[in-house]
């Protein structure tokens, strides 16, 4: 059964190539490789306006990704948006007076939370809240303010 043997080998090669293709797609193309992250701890922050922030948006400090947004909800008492962030446990020494702000990556890029560490000796724990926050810059608002201001200046003259 010589013929049958080469056929087996070819089928084996085919199946191996197909599975290799799937692995390539899973590991090289998709974000699966960044999924396998170790433990995280949760920190919340309230923003006046969280802009276009989404669940799974990155949380970064000094340009390095240190976690991701876990949930975004609206607080009907304070009328603010409450953002829960999962921070990787290896970055556990963030000071309690860390500032959280919503930034945009590039002009049209996605929005992310930037954490700016403060100088406190105490560190954020699981479930603690970041007090100092800065809202997302809403482009329409900024343009509106700019137009309003320049019109006002014209009227003064």
């Amino acid at each position: 059964m010589q013929h049958s043997n080469t056929q087996d080998t070819l089928v084996g090669l085919f199946v191996a190539a197909g599975i290799a293709g799937l692995f390539f797609l899973a590991l090289q193309v998709s974000n699966l490789s960044t999924f396998v992250e170790e433990d995280t701890y949760t920190v919340t922050a309230s923003f006046e306006n969280s802009g276009g922030l989404k669940v799974k948006s990155p949380v970064s400090a000094a340009g390095v990704k240190i976690g991701q947004v876990k949930s975004i909800s609206f607080d009907p008492k304070t009328y603010q948006s409450v953002v829960e962030m999962a921070i990787y446990s290896k970055y556990e020494n963030l000071p309690t007076d860390t500032t959280a702000s919503v930034f945009t990556a590039g002009l049209l890029g996605e929005q992310y939370v930037n954490l700016e560490p403060g100088g406190s000796d105490e560190y954020l724990q699981d479930g603690s809240k970041i007090e100092i926050t800065q809202s997302a810059i809403i482009l329409e608002k900024a343009i509106g303010q700019f137009l309003f201001k320049s019109a006002e200046e014209k009227a003064k003259k």
Binding site: F14, A17, G18, L22, L25, V29
Partner: peptide, 15 residues
């Protein structure tokens, strides 16, 4: 069995 394997190969080679 063969169809998903072929599709995965197609996408991988295309990328």
């Amino acid at each position: 069995i063969a169809m998903p394997l072929l599709a995965a190969l197609f996408s991988a080679v295309g990328i």
